[in-house]
Design a protein around this nucleic acid. Structure first.
Lengths: 207, 207, 207, 207
DNA sequence: TATGAATGAGACTTCATTCAT
DNA sequence: TATGAATGAAGTCTCATTCAT
């Protein structure tokens, strides 16, 4: 019995190459965007032959998928871990948010791949989103000046609102349930008063 | 020597073709997704020759761009109109949300193009988002059961949260300002307590 | 009998339009080159509709053909006329040459179409010809300095030699008759001693 | 981690493919003419895939350019070599002419591509040139019969004259310098008396 | 395992020509 | 006679994937 496992050595090597490949891909993809990155580019960045690429991943999409999946899994783990430290649900929420932004800061490269440019399609959406963010920011600022809204960081909230509606609508159009009016009310309620059962109700605000 | 104004007849014909083209494009794109739609498909759906397509739009992208831009513009108009009917900023917000979902219901086709499938890239993001939505829903439900969160429609809120973070992070990674910790706090604050200056503060909930 | 010819009026009009068309085409073709000129461009320049173009010429090539043919015919006429004024064959030759360059000066536009750019093919040939012209010029100049050649205008002669060989070879390769050696001798003889039966033999050049 | 030198084996293969491609291209282009030859035709003739073509040449034009350039370079080399063998400028000239026709005989294929058909444009020019060649031949023959011109091979000289003027005019119209009259005189002089400083001046031709 | 030359389906775009008005 | 919208065949180039070495 000379070897722990017959092929353990080569297995390890293969795994290492795989990781190097993934790392190289991350860099190239973040740079050029998904659609402008050719398999040849990734192979070149990893310093391997094109053919070799296919020994590790069956398709270009598979690599991308693994990249995103792995990242998503890692994020989920960190969120879970952060929440697990807390008992109270409000604290869990807060902890998760901190974990989220730490993760984002540590994984800019992958996030840039996902949200990045190099794709007419995405480029366009970004522009449209930007327009709505600007619009939202304007109304938020006005509302805050008038004392109707609390003075939160305007740009952050504006982005939050736009993202919120984009995702909600993309889910909702598939079913149109609950009815539009109810959706609008739920969203309004959520945005105005938040999730917390206990309002801020700082000293009952008796004026 | 030549009249400057082409016959109004041919003008009309051209305009009609243009409309048919746009309508056909909308349908095909919503069906097959942007990337799986060939110019030839659109032409066929509009029952015109391939070359004719290029009489109206210089490229495939241009058509798509016009479609999305026009839709975005229309949405913005309706939001503005809805808000203009109200004085109070809270009411404006609510009105905009109603307008938004009416619009969504009335423009499912275009929205499906934007958020739809037919794109490995998007497909993948959808899956990842779905995972996080499920995760969020779980925690929300638990929090609601425990009385930490108000009983809002769980799926809606879960989608809202995920969309919120996706958009916020895609904006934030470009600058990493404000710092991560502050981002987390702002988001937590927003989500827990909402925007409203006046909390719900229903009769202090004494039981 | 009201009209000379039933349709004489319209016939005349048609002929005039045809001429205008030709003139407009001349300008556009000289500008953009044959291959870069679309029928639509010609029609626009002539201020007529694309369809109208086809009432006067069956194809784009036909117009071009007419243009070149007409020009060639005109040139031939002028050469013939010039030669007819002279009795002596040497004088005829000289007269033709003068007529030729007068014509060229007066018809630069059409000549530019024929020899002009806007065609990968031609562009390339021009470059190659230019190289050989430069090469020939160099040798001619050297030969003249050494007193082997008469002091004629170098650039002109260099171009003449290159054009001569290009045309001769393009004719000769189709048949390879007379044999190569004889071709070389004929050309050498022609170039060195010219056509004239009576050599210059200016006062026996006794020094 | 990767060797910098690809296996000499694959290098060889690549070179071989390159040669086959060039050879096939030469044949097809000579057959069908530049404009009637599709990249697909060349690929088929070389028995390779269309995509493979683009591994060797970035565009169809690039191949053509290389073909012509290489040929032109080769011709120039042979002319230079031939001239280098001689001291006297007259002998150099003669040597170059012999080299030229040898080369033409050995490279008919490429020359046919350059001067060949398959191009409305060229076709047309050929016809026009042919007309002028016929015209020139007629006058030359007449002049010879009358003893004004030396009895050289008529067709050769006729082609030479036409090519000469075509090239000279295509150069001259760009600048119109020297003036037309001088051009005519230079050309006449060249054609009648040739380049040689020493006229034939065989025993004063006393009859 | 590693390589990179070869593949070829596929998509876009152009433009001479037609034809309904 | 005049128009210009419509046509669609044709041709170029790309790139994920395969496969012989």
């Amino acid at each position: 019995m000379r070897l722990d496992t017959p092929t353990s050595r080569s297995q390890q090597r293969k795994e290492r190459t795989r990781q190097e490949l993934l790392a190289a891909a991350k860099k190239v993809l973040a740079d050029k965007g998904y659609h402008h990155t050719k398999v040849a580019d990734i192979a070149a960045a990893a310093d391997i032959g094109v053919g070799t690429f296919y020994l590790y991943y069956p398709t270009k999409d598979a690599l991308f998928l693994e990249l995103v999946d792995a990242t998503a899994r890692k994020l989920k783990e960190q969120l879970d871990h952060a929440r697990a430290q807390e008992n109270d649900y409000v604290d869990k929420l807060r902890a998760a948010h901190h974990a989220f932004f730490s993760f984002a800061a540590a994984n800019r490269e992958v996030l840039k791949i996902v949200f990045g440019h190099g794709n007419t399609f995405h480029e366009l959406l970004r522009r449209v989103y930007a327009m709505f963010v600007a619009d939202a920011a304007e109304h938020l600022a006005a509302g805050m000046r008038q004392g109707a809204f609390r003075p939160l960081h305007v740009e952050t909230v504006a982005n939050a609102l736009v993202g919120m509606f984009a995702q909600v609508v993309s889910w909702w159009i598939e079913q149109e349930q609950p009815p539009a009016a109810m959706m609008a009310e739920t969203m309004t309620d959520l945005i105005l008063h938040g999730l917390a059962a206990q309002p801020l109700c700082s000293p009952p605000e008796r004026e």
